[in-house]
Amino acid sequence: MAGASRFAAAVAIVVVIAGLTLLPQFSGEYGVQIGFRLLIYIVLGEAWNLLAGYCGLVSLGTSSFIGIGAYVLVGVLNAADVPISITLVGSGLVAAIVAFVVSPALFRLRGLYFTVGTLALGEALRLFMINASFSGGAGGWFLNAPSPSTNALFYYAIGLLAAATIVISACTQTRFSILLRSVRDDEDAATQMGVRAFHVKLAAFIIASFLMGAAGGLQAYKLGAIEPYGMFGMQWTIDVLSLVIIGGLGLRLGPVVGAIIVIALGEYLADYPELHIAITGVILIVIVRFAPKGILGLGLQLARWLTAPRPASGALRSGAPR
């Protein structure tokens, strides 16, 4: 059963990704723009879900790695004529290296302290980039390379999502997933089972940071101009966390559902950005309280409830007067 549903999910993902490549043929410029954002959000959401949902590392440092990826991409493209795909890998690699460097300090912190530590990391990087002279300070950098077409960007995003899907599936559908979840559920019990918890967390952190870095790079390629307030801004952290929690923390397809909801809400309230974020906050609070597994979890529960045999109602019927 589990194998079948896993296969079905894989097929669904492939079909969706293949279908997405056709989108520019049917939708206008606007549709492709939205599609690009959706894809970036799904990639970021999957990366964050790997950390928080599968490994229990609730990070508020998402923007750090997005920002690093963005600066690496612009820096590299401005300095040399490197193919974009290789530059994106570079963005991811540098983000992963930064994650590796800060991990000994961050992993000394457990639970809430880890969360606060990642928040401080993001803030520290932002302040650093605002003040550092090499990065152009608060003004940031302009990309000198010619700006890509919307469709080209969209195809790069599909490529990134495909890569992310493969990497995340490799983590969440394999033996590694079991080690990840054991650390999430009870780190002490896991180490007593011989799990090298530090290495497991490090692997998840590096993979997630790589994906966030690459996504940040692609976002910078689209923008053509980057500055620290935007690329290292809290907004990324808020959006990514919200979309995963709203969609379904720890569920493979939670980020997809969440990204669709968050982007739809954002588009619907596009003229009222503050209201949009405030409403996101309300939804977040409601989900945390009433649906710890998000909208997708709620849907799955509903589906199970609908398909499950209900002895209670049967008993009621038999007990009714004839």
């Binding site: 609730v58 508020l60 809430l112 969360t115 808020i238 966390l241 929690i245 974020i277 405030a278 996101t280 906050g281 309300v282 977040l284 609070i285 945390v288 309280r289």
Partner: peptide
């Protein structure tokens, strides 16, 4: 903590 995060953005 997440709830207070929500309160913060609201």
């Amino acid at each position: 903590m997440m709830t207070m995060f929500g309160v913060s953005i609201i």
